[in-house]
Simulated scan of single mutants.
Amino acid sequence: MTSTPTPGLTWFNSAEPAPARDALHEVCASTAWSDRLLDGRPYADADALCQGSDLATSALTSMDLAEAMSAHPPIGRPKPGDPASTREQRGMAGASEELREELLELNLAYQERFGHVFLICATGQSAEAMRDAARERLGNSPEQEWERVRAELRKINRIRLTRLAHEGA
């Protein structure tokens, strides 16, 4: 059974490359990821778009992953004026100052250990859950952590692409 494309997906499938790329850049900052998704158009439905994203994310090199992560702010510090990071980090809204400071310290320790921002799909996560994940992941090897980052990026991209498919750019 084939589902009908949503208005946002209809727009994305037919948009000129530049505006479609701009919309994808709001989802993920990796140029390689955007190129693969643009090359895969048209998509039958949001699931097909998300599957294309998963494949593109799996193919990212470490440099591509670094490019993708460059657009993600640290947990607890959403980018001012960026509704996506604010919405996704909603779980930090009620966090105590002590918890915010602890997460900042964990973010710094993580960045020192791995050389990049702590990336987690924060949607639906409490501040405590994100803190606990940061603590746990500090014990990962760099190889384990790259795979974890890739998995978290897949989840983030799926959430953002689903929104794009339904709402458009």
Rank of each mutant, 00 (worst) to 15 (best):
S3V: 14
T4C: 12
T4H: 14
P5I: 13
P5Q: 11
T6W: 00
T6I: 05
W11N: 11
W11S: 10
F12M: 08
A15V: 03
A15G: 06
E16D: 13
E16C: 07
A20D: 04
A20H: 04
D22I: 04
A23Y: 05
H25W: 12
E26G: 15
C28H: 01
A29N: 14
A29K: 14
A32C: 07
A32M: 06
S34A: 15
D35V: 04
R36N: 11
R36Y: 09
L38K: 04
L38D: 01
D39Y: 05
P42E: 15
P42Q: 13
A44T: 09
D45Y: 05
C50F: 05
Q51T: 14
Q51M: 13
S53F: 03
A56D: 00
A56T: 02
S62L: 14
D64W: 12
L65G: 11
S70Q: 12
A71E: 03
A71Q: 04
P74A: 15
G76D: 03
P78R: 00
P78N: 01
G81P: 01
D82A: 08
P83M: 07
P83Y: 08
A84C: 05
S85N: 09
T86R: 05
E88Q: 03
E97W: 07
E98S: 15
E101M: 06
E101T: 11
E105W: 03
L106P: 00
E112M: 12
G115W: 08
V117W: 06
A122D: 01
A122N: 01
A122T: 02
T123M: 10
Q125Y: 05
Q125M: 09
A127F: 02
A129Q: 15
R131A: 04
E136L: 12
L138F: 12
G139T: 15
G139P: 05
S141P: 03
Q144Y: 02
W146L: 12
W146D: 12
W146R: 12
E147D: 15
E147I: 07
R150C: 11
R154M: 09
K155N: 05
I156Q: 01
R158G: 00
R158K: 05
L161P: 00
T162D: 06
H166N: 15
